[in-house]
Simulated scan of single mutants.
Amino acid sequence: MSRFFLFRLVLDLLAVSLLLTAFAYDLFGNAAHEIIGACMFALLISHNVFNRRWYGTLSKGWREPRSIFSKTITLCLLMTMLGLLVTSVIISQTVFDFLPVQSGFTARQVHALVAYLVLFVAALHMGLQWSVIMRIARQALGKTDDTMVQALALRGLALVVAAYGVHSLFVIDIRSKILMQTTFSFWDFEAAAIEFILRHMAIVALCAAIAHYSLKLLNALKNKRYVSR
């Protein structure tokens, strides 16, 4: 594994970490929130530069279920990220405050909606590369493969985290954010800041697991069709 690839992976994981951090708006305040967001978008620009060859393959592979699945997720991520960037500029009070743009309450609701869509789709996108991430982790630990006990333990842990992620969707009240409903419930960061971060991480893990095992299912169906021939 090349050092350059590891460097790119670290930048991608840092971008995801900044996205999670940006959700703690009430903890850090508006100025820090916008700076965190600007840094995240800078990392995303570098991600697109490093992966610019992907755009050349965009018109190919649309007959293969696995390719359709992965490209659809990546295109959705691109569109939602552009939407997040546009709404960020519109409602900015610090980084882009010099622009002659006016915003209202609706724009902030749309920004919150798009932010959570980005969280879901970015997690799905990360799940597409989960096998690569785990292979790198094994190499770093000096392991070539997992034993049966380790594999079962990891799958059990993934199931527990996914269940926590499902529960977190209700605790954080994702439904009201997706529907852009006005609520008067706010997270108490003084009492449960760590819980807020863990719940969002669990949601990311849930979506990543869905993408990862969906790919496995598509591969299994492809192999089954190949054998039946």
Rank of each mutant, 00 (worst) to 15 (best):
L152Q: 09
R52D: 00
L19C: 02
Y213R: 00
H47K: 01
V166W: 12
I90Q: 09
G142R: 07
M40E: 08
F69C: 00
N223T: 13
I172M: 08
Q102K: 10
L159N: 08
G83E: 11
G29H: 11
R108P: 02
F170L: 12
L44W: 09
V171P: 03
L217T: 12
L43H: 06
I178P: 05
K216D: 10
Q109V: 12
H47P: 00
I136C: 01
R225T: 11
L85D: 13
A22E: 14
N219I: 14
Q102Y: 14
V118F: 03
Q102N: 14
V204P: 05
M40T: 10
H212Y: 15
T144C: 01
A38P: 07
F5M: 13
K224M: 09
L117N: 08
R108K: 12
M148L: 14
K224D: 15
T21Q: 10
A158V: 08
G142N: 02
W187L: 01
L206Y: 06
H212K: 01
S103H: 14
L157S: 09
D145A: 13
L9Y: 06
I35V: 15
A211F: 04
D188E: 11
R66M: 07
M1L: 12
M180F: 06
F69V: 04
A220H: 11
F28H: 15
R8Q: 11
K177T: 15
Q150M: 05
